[in-house]
């Protein structure tokens, strides 16, 4: 067997209290089928737990899903927690039921990208790929 270079490591997290993980699981699985290693935190995680997990696992991208509408609170909290844990450089991609004006605002706060329901999975995968590649260039010197 060969040594495989994995495409990247992704953390999929669900901060907040909503238990609707259909979207998160579809994304997790699609990422796996696209060659990513995916770590899923499960539902009901605090932003701090998600951040520390991302650091310990040294992931290339963090993906967050919030469907309760609490994204304006929870996404920035994850960014902050990552920053405090010296992982402020890790790109964070968000998904959920998110109105246009919130998207602008969240991107200004440092979210890499925000997706709403109905976005084709391929579009989401492409964004994960792009963010991963950029991050890994900074992270590694590969022979």
């Amino acid at each position: 067997m060969d040594i495989q270079q994995c495409r990247g490591r992704i953390l999929i997290g669900k901060p907040g209290l909503d238990g609707h993980d259909r979207g998160a699981k579809i994304i997790a699985r699609s990422l796996r089928d696209d060659g990513f290693e995916v770590i899923y935190t499960g539902i009901r995680r605090t932003p701090e737990e998600i951040a520390l997990t991302a650091i310990q696992e040294d992931v290339d991208v963090v993906g967050l899903s919030v469907l309760s509408g609490a994204h304006n609170e929870l996404f920035p909290e994850v960014l902050k927690a990552l920053h405090q844990a010296k992982g402020g450089d890790i790109p964070v991609i968000g998904g959920g039921i998110i109105p246009e004006e919130d998207i602008q605002h969240l991107k200004e706060l440092g979210m890499y990208e925000i997706f709403t329901s109905g976005t084709p999975v391929q579009t989401i995968l492409n964004t994960f790929r792009e963010a991963t590649e950029k991050y890994r260039q900074r992270k590694h010197k590969i022979i």
Partner: peptide
Amino acid sequence: PVSGGAFLGDRI
């Protein structure tokens, strides 16, 4: 073995 990806779920 197909995609090279993995689901790492022990942490949960």
